[in-house]
Design a protein around this nucleic acid. Structure first.
Lengths: 353, 353
DNA sequence: TTACTTATCGTGTGCGCACACAATATGTGT
DNA sequence: ACACATATTGTGTGCGCACACGATAAGTAA
């Protein structure tokens, strides 16, 4: 027979004190003599008491309020993923009187970030989940959080910080390696391969650089010397259009046979490729299940997408913060989410954007 | 300002009755006049009352007991996945006074299944999660569950049944299609490709047949006519050894360039390939992250593994049953889990076996 | 009418915990 | 001895719900 779960009253009885005293010990509220505290702690330790979280949330009328500081997805549908994940996490913990308020800032606007981060602090949440895509601004925000004693978790961009509770996201280097592998399988005779950044602020985007390093490292292996990886940066706003710049890349002495786009914007390359004639035969690998990407996956213009699991990043961010608050469970510093490989055949099983 | 969550007392007050009456309506306990019941239901409907699950589990002292009827993983490590997932699900719902007992049967033993299924019924669980790998025996067990009024969910093998609450697992046909796709990418010049069943009872394994259909359908597309898929069944116990049978398959007029193994036993083919000399250059695609498979993935003898997400099957099975019991949430009849594509670069992010 | 069922409804207690507050013990100074 | 401050401990109430049980109303037979 299994012994009944022990309760605070059981411990109190065993220690020869009242439940109030045990409660004070459990919550480090002080006002307990050292002798009795030690006795109670010993019993808790030995019998392995674990509080009943259900009764606890019911008994304390505490409501937990989380804040999510994330990019708006008006311009870039990628960011709808984390938001959906955050909502899912919120739902899961709603019975525990936990709610999440989302604050959206514009990706390219430092002002917008500052403004929203200020609103977050004013709301005095119990914890914060944020995407530190703006490096400098985020670092100073970290300080404010620390000063205010508010724990915070990061996702999407791994900004090393002692103060952050944890980071949730992909391992960007490994992600680049994987892209290399997929490229090598799809073009097994070798040839010219291009890595393309589109409209990115590389100085402020360490994760993109990591992807790049992984990609080139893969083709640095001696088994893959017959591949010739090249690196391009395209600014769609400047000079000639995207098609023209792409044509320049493709039409060299040796034909290009593979393109790796480091962000979710592969659809723009696919679109450009589609409009060229004759349509070049190029393997295209990109990121994330944006509807536009999926369209080109169906058309056969994109061969592989690597899913950065943006949904999961939001979801796990909330889960880790919630468990930290509710169960005092300290998460691992880094939670790496899977790098899902997507083709036409399995795309339907992953959340699209 | 957001209105307070409404409680049973609120409804009672609005309806001009006591909480006891509202409670009777909520739980269909009868003994309520039709007029008042209608009034209460109208209020519940309009105001969108939702019971506080926390207070509910605390108030009712009900303990839920689930049973998992699953293959033992002594012989086949694949089955450790569902078990681990079941344990994870159990942990998640432990605060809600829900526990899971696992009953293991031997894959090849009908007797063992009958015996364990009998134990399950005697334990009178509130719901059952099972892997109906033994078709006939499972069907008769379904009847017993139905007679006993115990809801049951299925995973791994999709045995259509009106009585089952739901099925959790992969879409086997789609899985075969995916294998075809991966094969086509890895060998883009085409050639002889073999689908191999190893030691399987195909008559009793409809999901393997589905995979086969998907695989052949993929190569039936006119874009892939340069592939010549062939079908083989290997019985390692009979006649010549596995190596010999494999050699027969490989050494025909035209060389074999791809092998698709329909189960988690690709490592056996890899092992055989390794021992042949000269080592043939063959693309090998299999299933699941068994440690043995991962070893050959590292050695480069296996190119792709498709993860059947056995862990997730157990986990979601428990989650669906728990939510059904706790929240009366009726799950979708079919929950298809992702077909994860695994290479050396992303294997570490998925649970191994 | 009374006595007695039966249908319907209200009340009280407990689940395990958190927390405010009351109660007691201990110590100090006069 | 006293009053009083401080340290320590105990008690009571409520969180929202489930459920047993008691209470009341309505109906029936005598």
């Amino acid at each position: 027979m299994e012994s009944k779960k022990l309760r605070i009253v059981d411990i109190a009885r065993l220690a020869g004190v009242s439940t109030g005293t045990v409660d004070r010990v459990l919550h480090n509220r002080g006002n307990v003599s050292k002798a009795i505290e030690a006795r109670i702690r010993a019993i808790i330790e030995q019998l392995g008491y674990e509080p009943n979280i259900i009764a606890s949330t019911l008994g304390s009328n505490k409501k937990y309020k989380l804040a999510a500081l994330i990019p708006s997805f008006e311009k870039d549908p990628y960011w709808e993923g984390p938001y959906n994940g955050i909502c899912e996490g919120e739902q899961e913990f709603a019975p525990f009187e936990l709610s999440v308020d989302s604050y959206f800032f514009h990706l390219e606007s430092s002002d917008s970030f500052l403004q929203q981060s200020e609103r977050v602090l004013q709301a005095k949440p119990d914890a914060i989940l944020m995407a530190p895509v703006l490096l400098r601004e985020s670092l100073s925000f970290f300080q404010k959080c620390k000063a205010a004693g508010i724990p915070f978790a990061l996702f999407n961009t791994d900004v090393p910080s002692e103060d952050a509770l944890c980071y949730i996201g992909q391992d960007s280097f490994q992600s680049g390696l994987l892209a290399g592998r997929l490229m090598s399988y799809s073009i097994n005779q070798g040839g010219r391969v291009a890595l393309i950044h589109i409209d990115e602020d590389l100085d402020n985007s360490p994760h993109l650089v990591k992807k790049e390093e992984g990609f080139f490292q893969f083709f640095g292996q001696k088994a893959y010397q017959h591949f010739k990886p090249e690196r391009y940066i395209i600014q769609s706003g400047t000079g000639s259009g995207l098609e023209a710049q792409l044509t320049d890349i493709i039409d060299k002495k040796e034909a290009l046979c593979g393109i790796f786009v480091t962000t979710s914007r592969a659809y723009r390359i696919a679109s450009a490729l589609e409009s060229l004639s004759p349509k070049p035969s190029v393997v295209l690998i990109g990121y994330d299940l944006l509807h536009k990407n999926l369209q080109y996956l169906e058309k056969g213009l994109i061969q592989f997408l690597i899913n950065q699991n943006s949904h999961g990043q939001g979801y796990w961010g909330i889960v880790h913060l919630a468990e930290f608050l509710l169960y005092k469970r300290v998460p691992d510093k880094r939670k790496y989410l899977p790098l899902d490989i997507i083709t036409l055949e399995n795309a339907r099983y992953y959340p699209a954007l």
